[in-house]
Design a protein around this nucleic acid. Structure first.
Lengths: 149, 149
DNA sequence: ATTGAATATTAATTCAAG
DNA sequence: CTTGAATTAATATTCAAT
């Protein structure tokens, strides 16, 4: 049993069953003849970004991850629709040109967005410099941002 | 300090800060002069349906409940019922053909959905390219999307 | 790289009290 | 009905092994 397969199995399980805790995963996999411990489930959950969601009924259920900043992302999209001019990446960096006076606002939203590939931003009046975790993230951010416009 | 007020404060805090654990809430409220214990935060989190989300960066962050996505997923289902034409996967990618002018809308909903296997989307007029975390996710996304139609 | 066993940490609940 | 202190339960991590 490969990790990938197990991940896939966990994704399926949370759709079908109310899985309240990690030990439940252990038991459910055991039923399928798969021996695994809670420690591994914990790691799987982390990698899959699963979340333990409190239910109205009072219990808990592991479920698909939320889009951390649903609202922020929407705001960012609206702002970029207005303010975006151009963008380029180099190494760890992404430089965005905005209409005058808007770079700070974009940077502020970026800092609290779900885009955790971003380490930080430095903004002038019409230019934002994003520092990303790695060059790949810089490229990914460019695509993400473009998809919002 | 009433419970309602505190709940609002917590909602605000998770938008502004990366709150990694319940004790962080305790400290943040203490900074605002509000004395509260972890037990109460735990109850608040349960009532607000907040979730502790694993981040790509390795840490955790309390965030908004995934409930909001149910709606997004439903919207996506309705949109796809109208606009879907065809779909195919290759490696990390999923390409969807839609009726003219609809790809952007689908992409926007995808980005705000609970589908965390998706890194990002790039949309033209009638074509959406989804970039997934891995080839398995691309395949899984195809199945999930088909199940919505 | 992935895992289990043990452990540390964090979170949920119980229980008494306001 | 709400809370804190104490406790239990659950989860994350460390460490050794593979």
């Amino acid at each position: 049993m490969k990790k990938r397969e197990r991940h896939r199995l966990l994704q399926d399980l949370i759709q079908e069953k109310v899985v309240e805790k990690q030990e439940d995963f252990v038991k459910l996999l055991e039923d399928k003849g798969i021996e695994i411990t809670q420690a591994t489930i914990s790691r799987d959950i982390k990698e899959l970004h699963l979340v333990k969601t409190p239910l109205d009924s009072g219990g808990y259920r592991y479920s698909m991850p939320p889009d951390v900043h649903f609202d922020t992302t929407k705001k960012l999209g609206r702002l970029l629709s207005d303010a975006y001019i151009s963008m380029d990446t180099m190494d760890y960096f992404l430089v965005m040109k905005t209409s005058p006076g808007n770079a700070q606002a974009v940077g502020a939203l970026m800092d609290n967005s779900a885009f955790d590939g971003v380490i930080g931003s430095i903004c002038g009046d019409d230019t934002m410099l994003l520092i990303c975790r790695n060059p790949e993230m810089a490229q990914l951010m460019k695509e993400k941002l473009l998809s919002l416009i």
